[in-house]
Nucleic acid binder design. Sequence first.
RNA 1: GCCUGCUUAGCUCAGCUGGAUAGAGCAACUGCCUUCUAAGCAGUGGGUCAGAGGUUCGAAUCCUCUAGCGGGUACCA
Length: 576
Amino acid sequence: MILDLIHNEVKKALTQIENTDSSKLDIVVATNNKFGDFQTNVALQHAKILRKKPLDIAQDIADRLQSSPLFSKVEIANPGFINISIDTQTINSLLTDMSSCQYNGISQTKSNETIIIDYSSPNVAKTMHVAHLRSTIIGDALKRIYKACGYNALGDNHIGDWGTQFGKILYAYKNFEHPTDIEKDSVAMLEKIYQEFTQKAEEDSTLDDYARQELVSLQKKEEPNYSLWKKFISISLKEFHRVYKRLDITFDMENGESFYNDNLQGIIDQLQSKKLCQESKGAQVVFFEDDKYPPCLVQKNDGSFLYATTDLATVFHRQNKLNANKAIYVTDNRQKLHFQQFFHISELMGKDYELEHVMFGLMKFGEGTVMSTRKGAVISLQFLLDEAEKRAFDVILDRDYSEEEKKEIARVVGIGAIKYQDLSQNPMTDITFTWEKALNLEGNSAPYLQYAYARAQSIHRKFVETFPDHDLKSSKYCIDFVDGGSSKETIEKELALHILMYGHAVHHAKNQNKPNLIADYLYQLSSKFSSFYNQVPILKEESQSKRGSLILLSDLCAKTLKDGLNLLGIETLERM
RNA sequence: GCCUGCUUAGCUCAGCUGGAUAGAGCAACUGCCUUCUAAGCAGUGGGUCAGAGGUUCGAAUCCUCUAGCGGGUACCA
């Protein structure tokens, strides 16, 4: 909002000058406060077009900006920067606007577009482990961010509930020994017999044939396989949902792969009638023009379908039944080619909305952090969360809270820390898992942000207690920074300006599908608040009106922290 | 082979469509708890942005090449 304001003002000035192009106009926060609050390099960009010296152009623009009441100072600097200082009255009025804004300064999209976010997607009969964290948490954050910007964002959990592995599981379940009480410790049991099957099949390949028979029987919906399959799914879902609940993750729908079974043949028919696929080595294959991508199989030579087929069916289900305007898939970057292929195919088939693949890097494991399904040394998500909560609990062990409060604090801090360490990193880069980092509760971590919030809330409580007659509703922002002001005034203004950038940060994160941009913003916000906290004792401020202004600023900062953390799916605490 | 991604401080990572002195956290070191919560604040040290060219007023960022590491590449998802 503040940027839009400046943007419009500069644009106005620019249009008064001939042959300028305001489409490239970019306003950024000044890199150093000696360069004012914001800066732009439009003059430099126009030097060539206008065939003038950049400094002259900058001067011309600056002259036109001087008269704006929004700015207190407009200066030019070599080689052609324009440095803009915001008038404190402007800041005060923007803060007032933001305080009363129900969206906390996040501008809302006018189109009521439906965005499907496809994330998490665990496989039935497999334990969720740390590597599943990324898709789940990033997808959930994206959904929250899109919603905050006014979109109709829907989460879909595309569960892996179909495929060849079920033949193996069925065979193993029927023939291997396992606890009869399937409800107990069940996913672990299913996983165990699956591993057992894999081992035995290495020695005895006839097992694979038996598994195939079980699969065919399942595909024909024959009993008992069909019922068993349903049971495996319900057991798995039950366990997944326990984890989701702990992580505060929700979905608007959970259409697993099997949901699309009845549409798969239709996809092949369509591809064939449009001559998009052809038979090759007994399978149905899509070839791309100029061999842009390697061929993509949509039906195996035994007639069964593949990943790409299901995904194509999903694309058109979302188009026809959900009226999607956009679908975002959150998966790891190894699947890049697959997404390129089926995105391209769906384009040829007449897809009429936008598809986007948000990829993230692999989770790697450092020394001493073994990660192997075969060796059974997996770090389960449950275990990781338990550890995080334990670590958080230890920090407050001696504090004067009830046992129940301590548990709640440990829960919020522990889960928050796990989420934050993932979300604060650029999704694209590989993430190296270490216990040290995952359970870090200091520095740039969730507790740091939660702590800033809790401190602000604490001030608020004490403020109300100490000044019971103070009417907060009649308080006004009165930041009155003057050039060369004290460090108190400087940090106050810096904090205010940063708060005003919240809406921009959220949209930036949305446009790039990078929640870490919000994490970054919030870390800086907390850091500025912590400095402010140390330098400006609000309750000691003698002027009543100034005191009122400071508490409003602290409150707005707290509100923004809470709002922003919520976008990352991280809870806040009133005390910790 | 072909396609594709990565390489920034001792470690883990930011760095937006090119902009002013490349930033954080951890680790190390120095101060600060009778004052709104020290999960904190203030500060110090630490860099050939893998290497070489190019594009231009200006490059960690864009282009080309080289090296190292990773991922993908027809019946898995």
